[in-house]
């Protein structure tokens, strides 16, 4: 995949990351429960690599905050860091993990990214963004309990979307012989 295409995919995924939350916000409390902005970031990492994934992870929340006011400025720094890690880890692992099955590769990369992003957000919140007022209970509540629906949604939709994009010929297939 050329550099130009990677950047355009990162930009388009960032645009989806702005549009999807706007659609989901007609549902009460949807942002923190359904995590609509996480989906395009992970998809971008899986199909276009770590740099493009990280770029989407940074652009989507920052531009969304500037253009639509969501997420609010105080929530932006930890969220941007978390999304950058999602894009970075999903992209780096999708390039390296080769189990012989596309779906298995993608799920390993996706789940690792989901765990890494949450751990990094928790560590940064405890040390920098909410130093002194952040606890393990708060991390478990915000990273897993509140957004359980969003986690299930990501596990259900991200890999099928990537496979659909490969089958539509819009991104290069990982295992051409499959």
């Amino acid at each position: 995949m050329s550099q130009v295409k990677r950047i355009v995919i990162a930009a388009v995924c960032a645009a989806i990351g702005i549009v999807l939350p706007m659609a989901f916000h007609s549902i009460p409390n949807a942002g923190s429960v359904w995590l609509p902005m996480h989906i395009p970031v992970m998809i971008c990492g899986l199909v276009a690599g770590p740099a493009a994934g990280a770029a989407t992870g940074l652009l989507a929340p920052v531009l969304s905050s500037l253009l639509t006011g969501m997420p609010a400025m105080p929530v932006l720094p930890p969220m941007a860091c978390e999304l950058v890690v999602y894009g970075l880890v999903s992209g780096a692992l999708s390039q390296r993990v080769r189990t012989g099955s596309t779906s298995r590769d993608l799920y390993v990369s996706l789940v690792s990214a989901m765990v890494a992003g949450r751990v990094v957000r928790g560590v940064l919140s405890a040390l920098i963004f909410s130093a002194g007022s952040y606890s393990l209970e708060a991390w478990l509540m915000t990273s897993f309990a509140t957004c359980l629906t969003g986690i299930v949604l990501q596990l259900v939709v991200v890999v099928p979307i990537v496979v659909s994009l490969e089958r539509a010929g819009l991104v290069p297939p990982r295992n051409p012989e499959e």
């Binding site: 999807l20 549902i27 939709v157």
Partner: peptide, 23 residues
């Protein structure tokens, strides 16, 4: 919410098609 989830695949395929054309 479930009906929005059903829209995800067509939205992504349509957006990636545009990205492909633009690049």
């Amino acid at each position: 919410a479930v009906s929005y989830v059903r829209l995800l695949v067509p939205i992504f395929v349509s957006a990636f098609r545009r990205a492909d054309e633009l690049s």
